[in-house]
Design a protein around this nucleic acid. Sequence first.
DNA 1: CTTATATATCAAGATATATTGATATATAAG
DNA 2: CTTATATATCAATATATCTTGATATATAAG
Lengths: 102, 102
Amino acid sequence: MDIFLKTIGSINDETRIKILNFINQNGEVCVCDIESAFNMIQSRVSRHLKILKEGGFLKVERRGRWAFYSIRTPLDAFRQSILEEIACLGLELPIGESRCRR
Amino acid sequence: MDIFLKTIGSINDETRIKILNFINQNGEVCVCDIESAFNMIQSRVSRHLKILKEGGFLKVERRGRWAFYSIRTPLDAFRQSILEEIACLGLELPIGESRCRR
DNA sequence: CTTATATATCAAGATATATTGATATATAAG
DNA sequence: CTTATATATCAATATATCTTGATATATAAG
């Protein structure tokens, strides 16, 4: 129950739905990518990414100064179906020029 | 987005998850059935059922004094997958003796 | 018609969650 | 070593959600 609630709670927020969809469409992104793509302050982005990670949707890999977030693989069928449902919402994707070198 | 958030928000609550699973396993129930099965006061039950209905999971049919709630049919694949995920949580089902005549 | 029952809704208080600005940590650059 | 950059976390405030008790409505029973 706790894990299920954490998963559902992690997508019970418009900001996180948009961030999750952005990562699902763009692949690996760092915190600053989302910061600039969505024009949000760093602490806010960082917190939402943490919640999505704890919800089981994202993995993070540190390389140098950057933390790269991407969809966790393999992803179970339930979370996969959520990603698909979100992809079908027709959210506008902000154009994300990456500010960090990869 | 609004409909999706309403759907997700409707299951972002332990009480509603249990109620939804109870209805999914037992079929049609009235408000007082849940009241007694879960030992909750009437206004609380009524409110949670309304939220689950607005989340697209339940339909309601009034017969006499009673309001009978059941899983909406046909249910779309996404909400269906949520019900299945909840069914797999292994929640204990309270024994629901119906207090109302059917 | 009056009373009892089932449900819905509202207002107030309690609890949880989101946002912001400040600070901490770690890595890279000069 | 010192400074700048990227990220994480904390404390305070703002906002949303949940619970309860009171009240309203509708139907059935006496």
